[in-house]
Design a protein around this nucleic acid. Structure first.
Lengths: 239, 239, 239, 239
DNA sequence: AATGAATGAGTATTCATTCAT
DNA sequence: AATGAATGAATACTCATTCAT
């Protein structure tokens, strides 16, 4: 019957859903297979019918989100940047991006902001999985590099508009360590921490969801703007 | 015997040390009391002589570091700021800190930088404990607010030079949400993530310890400087 | 389809074949129904279509071989013995078989040897099943008497030429305990152990298959010959 | 206290005892750790305090008996043989042992018989362990060679009087495959099977314990005697 | 005849904790 | 202060068997 065809896939989905919920709330080690079975409303043995062992569930979840980030569509910004270069509104120089005028810079920054929006949404929508990713990356396990891998992928998406364009123009462009660090430990790390500690922090600061979101986006923008000087975006400042 | 007098205090210390190491590597749930006993080279039952149960060890570690942050000495910066105000080199205004001249601003910023140095050191030296703090805060447990509490305390220390001085001058100074967010999710969160993922990240990026440290400090400075405009530090920018 | 018609009978056969292989390698308790299904390349549930339960497979295998021994054709030797008595070349006495001359004895012994050949072949060809029989007989189970039953049947076949002929001539012929023991614990038991530990022993002693076979047959002959004295075969030697 | 010192070792002994009993009755795979705990009257977890896992119990049992055989004292026979050679009553020849007279042969055979007695006792006293050894050797496991190893060790003991003496006199003495086979598949294998199937067989044949024992020893002697020809023991008969 | 999914009752093993000394 | 032994309650995982189709 329809119902059965449907429920055939459902059981495994329920197991995954319950695992996401429980792993994110109690950590992998803190979650009992029993609890997953109960939460998913399936027989415990069925979990082992679909997964080799408890860890295989975790692996699948983490692989899933790792494969998943890369699909973050970034083309729309990239296009506009290429357009700006072709238009002569943006010029890539040795140590900076030079914009023809303030309007061009504003246009660029609004694209960036738009993109940050997307990434923040993504992080918020997947915050349970990211929480799992984070917790597991804090352990000395085979998943210890996963968060960094994830951030790198996220960064690849985020950097597209700027870096990838630069690279296309000039493969040898010397990015400063500073810039790399900022991109790593500030921008994506902050977004991830925002998503992961969202509930906890909200309960304490008392801000509404939309206010928190806005504040975060403003903060990201402030950070972006810290690279702006006149009509340029400075990429290379190391002494 | 000497050995006994000596080891009397040592045993408990070894248990704590082993717990810090293991909890930070495998998480609380992932660590076995057996392993602690082995790593500490004590009889397993002795752990229960010193601690009520496994959780009591964790509690003590987390309390320890929470109490510990507040003792971060911050007075030296504070003094210099007060001095600047008295000297007339620094003037606190409605939405900004105004400096008499570039030299005054430079002086202030170097104090800040100096202070960031201290905090980074602290975070690095305690990174195992902070890692535990972080992991446990990611779970729905009684410790879930501990990391935020910790960051707040760290923030209090960090803000001392600026905020506390401001507050003393004007209790009603309206700090923007932006500013709060930046202070929370970027500045201390980034430092903490830096400390916590230090080894993992270093293995991947291949930078030397000192290079990583410098890059991080530069990044923090870049962030601080993003509030600088002319001879002012803008604190209130929300639209 | 052809394939279906064909595989219809095949499936059950494959299950049996896989069971023989696996039971003989891992024992009944050590074999999983899953493994049988995989080895037989059938769906696990299909096994329960053909067999009530796992034990039913074992029962069938053991019944099969138990029924099977009795069909060992022994008539050909029997005939020749009867012939020898009728010819006056063999005479059954109180405690021995007396042969008219050395040629008669030789003829008799060669028949025996011929027969041992057959039994050895049988044991070798069925060594997997016998291995199962042996393993199960070593447990306190309903099959614990099966090996002895099997050996008795084998013995009946083996004894046919001598004993059965004797019995037909003289039902009260008093066989010594010695003889019984030898027949039981030496002759068939040794052959069975030879078959069952064949691979294991060969890997260690390094003899070729035919050399092992010859050596075994020679050993059996040596044993048979130990009853030979002059032109007699002594059956009753107990003090 | 005394009692405690005593019971300290007792628990582990009880576990071993229960394991021997259960493994020999139900096989390794057929025995539940639960059952061992119950039979040994210890907490199940205690089993894991003394043994890494269920298999470690088996390993210890099998190692124990393997180490154990080699200690079978065989010297007494050896001495008497040396004595016979020195006395000139026994002479080792190319293909046989030659005795000075019938009395010498009788003396030798009685020593052998005496020795067989010992081995039979040993096998009977350890029949539970040997049963386990046998069962496990029938599986494709790491213990599959253990029985043959055991038999070899037993053989070394058994061969001492004859073979070792021969070897001492003439290292190149060519033992026939026959002889080796007989020694392997008949003599020790039969004794082992006797011990292992003792209860089962007795229930069927109805003989008393002492009668069975006597019959077995007689059978062994018959076998030994099959090598006797005149005042010689023939060792090399291969065609 | 065949199969993918599902399940109840186990099954080996673990683990925090306690006890006796 | 220290320890070897002991334990109850889990805990991950298994397995023979059944069900629905």
């Amino acid at each position: 019957m329809e119902k059965n065809h449907f429920s055939r896939e459902e059981a495994k989905e329920r197991i995954i859903g319950a695992s996401v919920k429980l792993f994110s709330e109690k950590g992998f080690d803190g979650t009992r297979v029993n609890e997953i079975a109960e939460a998913a409303d399936v027989n415990k043995a069925l979990i082992y019918y679909y997964f080799d062992n408890k860890e295989a569930i975790l692996d699948q979840l983490l692989n899933q989100i790792l494969n998943n980030v890369t699909s973050l569509s970034t083309t729309f910004v990239q296009k506009s940047i290429r357009q700006m270069i072709q238009d002569g509104r943006l010029c890539i120089m040795k140590d900076r991006l030079h914009f023809a005028n303030e309007a061009a810079l504003e246009n660029f920054l609004s694209h960036i902001q738009n993109f940050n929006n997307q990434i923040l949404d993504y992080a918020m929508n997947n915050r349970k999985l990211i929480r799992i990713l984070m917790t597991e990356s804090l352990k000395e396990s085979k998943h210890k590099n996963d968060l960094i891998q994830f951030i790198k992928e996220l960064g690849k998406a985020a950097e597209n508009p700027i870096i990838r364009t630069i690279r296309e123009a000039n493969a040898d462009f010397p990015l400063s360590n500073n810039f790399i660090f900022l991109r790593f430990f500030f921008h994506p790390v902050s977004i991830i921490n925002f998503a992961v500690y969202y509930e906890t922090y909200q309960k304490i600061c008392g801000l509404s969801e939309s206010k928190m979101r806005t504040a975060m986006l403003n903060s990201i923008r402030t950070l972006s703007n810290s690279f702006v000087s006149g009509n340029d975006i400075i990429l290379q400042t190391e002494a």
